[in-house]
Amino acid sequence: MTASDPRALAAAFTEAYRRAPEGVWRAPGRVNVIGEHTDYNDGFVLPFALPQGVSVAAARRDDGVLEVRSLQAADTVVTVPVDPHAPEARRWRDTAPQRERWAAYPAGTAWVLREHVTSAPIGGASLLIDADLLQGAGLSSSAALECATALALCELYGAADLLAPAGRRELARLAQRAEHEYVGMPCGIMDQSASLLCTAGHALMLDCRSGLSTQVPLPLEDSGLRLLVVDTRMHHELVDGDYGRRRAECERAAELLGVAALRDVKDLPAALKALNDPVLRRRVQHVVTENHRVEAAVGLLRAGATAELGAMLTASHLSLRDQFEISWPGADVAVEEAQRAGARGGRMVGGGFGGSAIVLTPADRVDRVSEAIRAAYERRGWEEPRFLTAVAADGARRLL
Rank of each mutant, 00 (worst) to 15 (best):
A11T: 14
R19C: 15
A27E: 14
G29D: 13
I34Y: 03
I34D: 14
Y40E: 07
D42P: 14
D42W: 03
G43P: 12
V45R: 01
V45P: 13
L50K: 00
V56Y: 03
A59K: 06
D63M: 02
W92D: 14
D94Q: 14
Q98L: 12
R101M: 09
A107H: 09
W111T: 14
R114K: 14
S119Q: 04
L127V: 00
L128P: 02
L139Q: 12
L139E: 15
S141V: 11
A143S: 08
L145D: 01
C147E: 09
A150R: 06
A152N: 11
L156M: 10
D161A: 08
L162E: 00
P165N: 05
Q176N: 10
R177I: 05
M190I: 08
S195L: 06
H202A: 11
M205V: 12
T214C: 11
L227W: 00
H235T: 15
H236S: 11
G241V: 04
E251C: 07
R252F: 05
L257S: 12
G258M: 04
D267C: 07
A271F: 06
V279M: 05
L280A: 12
L280C: 07
R283Q: 07
Q285Y: 05
A305W: 02
A307Y: 02
L309R: 00
S319H: 03
S319Q: 06
D322H: 02
E325T: 11
I326G: 07
P329K: 04
G330H: 08
V335I: 01
R340Y: 04
A343I: 11
G345A: 04
G350S: 09
S356C: 13
A357R: 09
T361V: 12
I373K: 07
A375L: 10
A376V: 12
R379E: 14
W382H: 00
E383G: 15
F387S: 00
L388V: 07
A392W: 06
G395P: 15
A396C: 05
